[in-house]
Every structure is written in structure tokens, then in C-alpha cells.
Amino acid sequence: MYQPDFTDILLNVDLLARGAWITIALWAIAFAFGLAVGLGLGLVRSSGNRWLSLPAAAYVEVFRNTPVLVQLVWFYYAFPVLTGWQMSGFTAAALGLALNTSAYCAEIYRGGIASIARGQWEAGRALGMGWARLMRRIILPQAVRRMIPAFTNRGIELGKMTAIASVIAVHELMYEARLLSSQTFRPLEVFTVIAVIYFIVIYPGTLLSYRIEARMARRS
């Protein structure tokens, strides 16, 4: 019978805590960036201008149709060859995750904007509003509310994705866990604890999304 032993984990708690901070920093940077860039892309996709919309669509499809691990590996190993700029693992991970998230967010913005009834556009235009003002004053305020559940889900997915950064040597939570596991030969304890930590950090987001969805269902 295997005797679990958690002392090594307890002794290295500071290591895991540091990893958790880097995980959170990675998440926050990528999410903020992804939301902002995604808005621009989503507006371009909704503009009806084919010359703008097509490249944006290509960008979105490339990031949505390739594995995020491939994206991170590409930004860490291949991108510097192209640009001559050797990034740290953290920068490459932040960049890859941010661009990936921006592609998904662009689709959320586009879908939300498209879900607004045509009558709203007509009512705005009947008041003499132009495209930009209509978007800002009428369409986006209504659409953003409908997008919140999808953004919440995106945040959860991104939180899980940050673990992949360990592959390109970002010292976040998963990296520290792998290190600890190989040093202590206690993979069962280490990876179980790590799974629980991720769950504790991410599950409140899931609960939040349930509350938001329930509230929206009640309103409609």
C-alpha cells in the first residue's frame, strides 16, 4: 500500500505560491489584452467592410484552428528567428495567450453585435446617428451585456491554458509542480495538490458564470 507523504510539498509551499502569482499575472495580462484587441477585431468584423473584415477573419481562424501549445512553441522558438528578438518565456507565453484570447473574444464581440435586432439599428439611424455613435451608444451597451457569459467562459478557458506555459519554461504553477515532482519523486502528491489548487482558483469562476447565466435567464 502506497504511503502518501506531503512534507516535501509543505516545505516548498513558497515555490508553489510564487508559481501561482506568475500564473495569475499571465492570466490578467493575456485577458486584458485579449479583451481589448478582440474588441477592435470584432468591430472590424462587424463593419461590413470586406477589405478590413477578411484579414481579421483570417487572423481569428488561424488562432482558433491551431492548438494553443503550438502557438506558444511558435512564439518562443520560431518568432525570434524571424524577428531576431529573443523573448523570455513569460513574454512569449503572454503574447501567445493574449493573441489566442483576442481571436476568441473577437468572435464573442461579433456574435453579440450581430444578435442585436435590426430595429435597433434602424431606430438609431432614424435619429440621425452615424455608425460609430450608433455602435457606442446603442448597440454595444446592449450587446456587451449578452456577451458577459461568453467572456466569463473565456476567462476560465484562459486560466486553464496558462498551465501550458510551463512547456516553454515559464515558472508558473504547473512548471513549479513539474519541477517539484521530478525533484521529490512524489508525482502523486504533487499533481493531486496542483489539480486541487487549480480547481480552487478556477471553480469560483465557473460558479460566477452559473450565477450570471441564471440571472440572465430570469431577466429574459
Binding site: 476560465i156 504547473m174 513539474r178 508525482p187 499533481f191 496542483i194 487549480y198 478556477i202 469562476g205
Partner: peptide, 13 residues
């Protein structure tokens, strides 16, 4: 609510 990479490592190791 947990990363797939953690599942992989947990099952393998």
C-alpha cells in the same frame, strides 16, 4: 475547472 495538462500529468505520472 482544471487544466488538461494537469490531467495528462496526473494520469501518466
Amino acid at each position: 475547472a482544471t487544466p488538461p495538462l494537469v490531467h495528462l500529468f496526473w494520469v501518466f505520472y
